[in-house]
Design a protein around this nucleic acid. Structure first.
Lengths: 325, 325
DNA sequence: CACCTAAGAGAAAAGGTTTTCTCACCCTCA
DNA sequence: TGAGGGTGAGAAAACCTTTTCTCTTAGGTG
């Protein structure tokens, strides 16, 4: 222990933590010695007494990581500067495993828990209320009195629809996922109120195949064809774009397409690359980290749902001017 | 503390840990009370004395998570049963950030560190040798005297090539990524030795666009065309399959295609779905967890590189019989 | 009957910090 | 010169376990 370099253990502790009373000279000297000797306080011992472990847990049921990874990156980025490390616990909708992970985290005295998922309208298969540590829900459903962060899907859908309108589309169709998803309904509602003409919403599954199929449905029937398609996610959009191309319909010249998610691997590889809505999940993660840290430090945080704005990523499938948010 | 239920603190501790000497009756009674009262020992205090935190750190520079996520899932799965939680530290090839994360983990007395990446021939931007805790390298390059786990790319490439041969292909071409990747060279070498005819390897980048381009090169030139294409990864394979389809070439009837990675989102959505090589990264993760745990418990582990076998996932782009490994 | 041994259980130390309390000292002011 | 106050620094308790050591008691043996 660096205390051997002149002062007692207690003085050293106070010097390094900026607490206690002592001459500035002593404080500096201790700091310098600690620096030289590479002293690093034992976080376990510190945690035992301060009741803070500088550790938080991230619980997710998103095995794919499509949503969780950016969220995680944001959390970690926000917290590492405060010396906080993050436990990642992947529970696959398995309540048993969730329980085990939560218990393991509580045993380790985490300062807080962030619950994250892949659907805004589904709870994680474990009850996190009544825990002794603060909980923040990020991109998953939380209890009504919880602190919840989510994307503003309506605003995102407005962005997408306006982009198509700005690109000159007159007849815009919305091809999206299952009606059972809350975000599908929200996006569809926003689409309906945003467009000028009569809305048309096609529900299917979250796959390229459905995008392909939707194009078939739209073009194989009589009547006039859409000149703009707003898709519920990037996979559907990719299917739509592929379907259009295979029919010799040019994107974006004949039909403009906008996706949702900005899942790089899909959006960037589509021909042409997809203009799509980004939910800014990394920002959401940062915010979640900020909030859980604040709560763990005892600061009061208003419960409720916070909607974070989406942004539009312009690529080539729709060249509409980006409207003001 | 549950000790209030009959015995002293020390006896309680011994009862719960199965150590010390006492009547079986006392032991059972203590356990029962602990169970009832929901007693959970404080991991910090325990760690302080036993020098084990039941915590390990996973360091990765794979932001995308394509490789790290399955590895992580395997590690977590293997370790959660032992009460071990995993810190996930995403460092984006940033030595500074890596240092901060490693220091934070060491402060928290992790029992071990698993280094993971996205390339087998690149080291993480931080020196982990000489640390006071055991380190296992999983899917990234480690020092020669380190414990390293990786996929057996040669065996995987053999699997792919044989699958095409079994499907009756006579002229098999290998379309793959940049020559600078060690795994590209290994896979290509295995392909060369496995096929009967003269080999042909086309190097490009890891993208669908390159797959498309490769098909163009192969079909727009004179000479006989391949009837089987082994692709360096699933993205290239998808490009190849799309390119073939757009030329009216049937897959797998005219040309069979095999990919590499079994990246579900790509492989399953391709038309037709891709037969591809799975590197079994989850198994690799489990193994990494097992090893780091063993090392943290002081068991001796042979340094060196362990190659874990790949397996073939048969879908529709190549229906070759799966050869014996 | 006395002595020794073994079993069962508790007391106490240790682990590395933080924090509160106490102490010694020097000034200042009356 | 003595009392009071402020300042700098150390002693000790506390955090919650595990682990070693010690003590008591009972049973067995000579």
């Amino acid at each position: 222990m660096a205390a051997l370099a002149g002062v007692s253990i207690s003085t050293a502790s106070k010097a390094l933590n900026g607490s206690g009373r002592m001459s500035e000279e002593t404080r500096e000297r201790v700091k310098k010695v600690a620096q030289e000797v590479g002293f690093r306080p034992n976080a376990l011992a510190r945690g035992l007494i301060t009741k803070r472990s500088f550790t938080i847990g991230l619980l997710t049921n998103d095995t794919y990581g499509r949503f969780t990874l950016p969220v995680m990156a944001g959390i970690s980025e926000e917290l590492v500067g405060h010396g906080v490390s993050v436990f990642l616990c992947a529970i696959e909708d398995d309540p048993e495993r969730a329980r085990v992970h939560v218990d393991a985290m509580l045993d380790k005295s985490v300062d807080g828990i962030i619950a994250s998922g892949k659907r805004l309208d589904r709870q994680l298969p474990v009850d996190l209320s009544g825990l002794s540590v603060p909980v923040v829900y990020a991109f998953t459903k939380g209890p009504v009195d919880g602190v919840t962060l989510r994307s503003d899907d309506e605003q995102g859908a407005r962005l997408a629809t306006r982009c198509l309108m700005d690109a000159g589309c007159r007849r815009i169709v919305h091809v999206t996922g299952p009606k059972t998803f809350q975000s599908v309904r929200e996006r569809a509602d926003a689409y309906r109120t945003a467009i000028d003409g009569p809305p048309e919403v096609l529900h299917g599954v979250w796959s390229e195949a459905w995008g392909l199929e939707a194009v078939a449905q739209l073009w194989d029937r009589g009547g006039d064809k859409p000149d703009g398609i707003f898709c519920g996610n990037d996979q559907i959009a990719r299917g739509v774009v592929d379907g259009l191309r295979e029919r010799g319909i040019r994107v974006p010249d004949d039909v403009a397409v906008v996706g949702f998610d900005n899942w790089d691997i899909v959006a960037a590889q589509t021909r042409p690359p997809l203009t799509t809505v980004d939910m800014n999940l990394k920002t959401l993660g940062r915010e979640a980290g900020r909030l859980v840290l604040a709560m763990s430090e005892g600061r009061e945080v208003q419960p409720g749902i916070r909607k974070l704005p989406c942004s539009l990523v312009l690529r080539q499938s729709c060249r509409g001017l980006e409207p003001p948010a």
